[in-house]
Design a protein around this nucleic acid. Structure first.
Lengths: 343, 343
DNA sequence: TTGAAAGCGGTACCAG
DNA sequence: CTGGTACCGCTTTCAA
């Protein structure tokens, strides 16, 4: 009986061993160097060798050990994704996440790592090649650390004032989009508009506020601003709705799911959405589509948004240049029954 | 001017170099071995050395290179997370994902990697220590590959028949929960119940079907089963609602967001939810909470669910044993105005 | 085109 | 407790 000198910390179960380059090399009867080149379709090996290697690799089910590859190549082949803490807009973030992960994985064989939001970010930061940050919030220490770090960062939405600039930005023109929504309900006859707004600790919120205020000035119409605490799904949204003036004839619900609360509130006041009061949502999704009547909404196309961010980040990583980049993400506007003309 | 012999493939930008163990060792005046031990709080170094090392590491901002560590330790310190393809229940999956990632990162310093759902899974599979699969679907090739692989797998929800068994399962007792919901509306006076059901290609759907049918048999009440195609957020949910019998006095909406469609439909038929028809949702969330009236729902506590899965997987990975584990995840039941007694 | 060998950054042995 | 060293698997250079 051999005395196993295993680690007592119970840190190991059976070590996970996979076939290595060496195994493929032996089987194919060539050197490991040749195998490495052949598997990556690089020149420097004869066609004959390449085929033999491919066959051997297939045969024993070889897959590259990314830790070894990353170590040797001085590159992590991994991008980080930072999501905000708040509990609103979860579906939106899930779509965005999917967009990032799918683009990275399929277009560049790059993995996507979720950055921790609680503890320190330094360790994760050191082990990714770059980071995508969605909706950077001015109050978040993690976001500040990521932006201050040495890795390229692409943000979805602009970085609010007071934080370091990111390497790249993909943004939605919220000033213009809010204007679109406000103009739309005005065209349909609204004269007294209320806007349910997210907190202004991120660019989206800031611009939504600005656009609403500006529209009030320039149009001469009454625009009531109501800030909804971001912990949506709670009574807070419903409470916010209680501030709605009774004379309001259009409501723009900016935070995700606030449209549902607004619809409920309006109905409880005896108003009929789409008939004597208009309702539009800023974030499209099941909420806007399944309410009765269906709610006019802006489709931010979160999955494509995520893919666009990943694309920009990977572009920055594979190019020698790290010059700042900025790109607008296009949205779609879905007009539905909730903004049928006022009677 | 030195002739740079860089890789022409434009694969490299500036290599990302971090301070290494060696740098810390030099600064602290000890061997790299000592540094390694000291940083991990392992015995084998004097307290004096440990402090010197910690100070030096802090000083130059040393963080371990996980690729190097993983290579040497034969362990990836990474778990994979597989999410279903469908577009429903996005908020639920986002919460679950957060639960997994937070537990793994804070409790074990293990990273969470999103498994690709499109291309091959083999390469990702080889580079994680284990995988969490949520809502394993019988039709998914990726799920089949993951389960057939050599890595431990913990599934959230049981694996449907026909697929290999996972190493561990954390499940919700959907038979019992559906029975709870059905009993609840019956107690409140319902006699003709309709159930909007998800597709039965996963255990949740299968059990929801079974429980509904069983309840019909044993209670003697009329239970109408309506399957909703899973691409929710589309007209499909609304179409499904059109199948509702006019005599129905209670609706159980199982797929996420189908409660909204049901509420809209019922209202359009002149029914008043909570008064002349009861409505309960299977998945709690903003939808159930913000509808008017608020909808009775089962809170699956997705974040804790994710954490529980990560906990089980990490437990399996750190123990020598790989005996199958099964554990129930507890849910909460929120009774709201939508199931106030029928008049 | 080929094979041998160095080394990426840690970890875990070993002898001192 | 300490320092020296082999080695994890892969990539890249170098010499043949």
């Amino acid at each position: 009986m051999t005395k196993r000198n295993a680690d007592d910390k119970a840190e190991h179960s059976e070590p996970l061993r996979q076939p290595t380059l060496r195994h493929v090399a032996e089987l194919a009867g060539v050197s490991t160097a040749a195998v490495s080149l052949a598997l990556r379709n690089k020149p420097g090996v004869s066609e004959e060798t390449r085929l033999a290697v491919l066959a051997a690799a297939e045969d024993i089910g070889y897959v590259v050990n990314v830790s070894a590859r990353n170590l040797r190549r001085q590159r992590n082949h991994t991008i980080g994704l930072h999501l905000p803490e708040d509990t609103g807009s979860l579906g939106y973030y899930m779509e965005f996440t999917t967009g990032v992960a799918e683009y990275a994985s399929s277009a560049h064989e790059v993995a996507t790592l979720l950055m921790p939001r609680q503890g320190g970010v330094q360790s994760s930061l050191a082990n990714v090649d770059g980071v995508v940050v969605i909706d950077p919030t001015s109050g978040s220490p993690a976001v500040a650390q990521i932006l201050a770090g040495s890795r390229p960062v692409v943000t979805a939405e602009r970085v609010p004032p007071g934080l370091p600039e990111p390497t790249g930005v993909v943004y939605v023109d919220h000033l213009a989009r809010m204007h679109d929504l406000l103009s739309h309900v005005t065209e349909r006859g609204a004269r007294q508009i209320a806007v349910l707004l997210p907190p202004s600790d991120n660019s989206w919120g800031i611009e939504a506020h600005q656009a609403s205020r500006l529209f009030g000035y320039t149009s001469g119409l009454s625009v009531q601003l109501i800030e909804v605490p971001f912990l949506s799904g709670q009574g807070s949204v419903i409470d916010a709705c209680k501030q709605l003036d009774d004379g309001v004839d259009a409501v723009i619900a900016v935070p995700d799911s606030s449209a549902a609360a607004a619809a409920s509130y309006l109905r409880s006041r005896g108003r009929e959405v789409g008939v004597d009061v208009l309702l539009a949502a800023y974030i499209d999704g099941p909420f806007a589509q399944l309410l009765d009547p269906p709610v006019t909404a802006l489709d931010l196309r979160p999955r494509e948004f995520g893919a666009a961010c990943a694309e920009m980040l990977l572009g920055i990583l594979t190019s020698e240049t790290r010059s700042p980049q900025v790109r607008e993400h296009k949205t779609e506007f879905h007009i539905r029954a909730s903004t049928t003309a006022l009677d």
